[in-house]
Design a protein around this nucleic acid. Structure first.
Lengths: 134, 134
DNA sequence: GCAATAATGGATATCGATGTCCACAATGGA
DNA sequence: TCCATTGTGGACATCGATATCCATTATTGC
């Protein structure tokens, strides 16, 4: 449903959320645990750090941690930086268009039943809801 | 939500469904009406023809028509040939895996609320439900 | 200050999706 | 039969996403 980068981001965040927050996790350890190429994961994590979702610290005893408690990070913040406009789907038949009730496309009614739960998922689910086992 | 090819397919099918079925529509006319590059659309339509969703006829008075009444074509038949496995989404955090209730990933419960309406949309919505104005 | 540790940024490679072009095959009508 | 019409198939170009590698920068502990 999401691209590889956004999926990697979700896996990484869910993993981090399942660990004590005061203890930083090394990039290479995380890569090994969640089975993602470490050089690729580092790019993903850098993007999440820029987005303010996690913090990265260098040097000995460095690593990554959540920037906030998992219950206060919504999934849209994790997925958004990678999916961009895709994380705010509009009209089915005219991608990129708003497709409001007035002047809606012919698939509007049927598509709403997918779009609304999808937006709800991104806006209302928090990282705590998907956190992995420690 | 879908790739460009699947979206083009949906637009073309919705357009065709809004026309009298006994009258074939020219590829180039359809391309102009729904604003899709005609050379690309022809590839998409060829795929749909192979999938048995529409029929193509060559020569004078040729063109494309629905293979069946719009009410008997489900969207999965239109989208499936282009989206492949993406049209049957499984686990959020482990793409490609089944993620059944037993041994489910940590996002299973939250993700179900998106996945189920999505699958319902593809399996139960018909082309008639999204057909365009004539 | 020095050495070890770790993340960062840039360059590059690879792959699939998107999009274009054109010669060819098939069809219908005169 | 011959020609205009119309879709088909293959080759090719382009672009963004995915992925890899390495030199550099920042930080900690001694």
């Amino acid at each position: 449903m999401f691209g590889a980068s956004a999926t990697h981001a979700l896996r990484a965040i869910a993993f981090l959320a399942g660990r004590p927050r005061e203890q930083a996790v090394l990039g290479r350890d995380m890569a090994r645990k969640i089975r993602i190429p470490s050089h690729y994961l580092s790019k993903v994590l850098a993007t999440l750090a820029r987005a303010g979702v996690l913090t990265a610290s260098r040097g000995a005893r460095g690593g990554y941690r959540l920037a906030r408690p998992a219950s206060r990070i919504r999934l849209i913040e994790v997925v958004g930086p990678f999916e961009g406009a895709r994380a705010r789907p509009g009209c089915l038949l005219r991608p990129g268009k708003a497709c409001r009730s007035s002047g809606a496309c012919s698939a509007h009614q049927a598509w709403r039943k997918v779009k609304e739960p999808y937006l709800d998922f991104l806006e209302r689910t928090t990282v705590e809801d998907i956190q992995g086992g420690s």
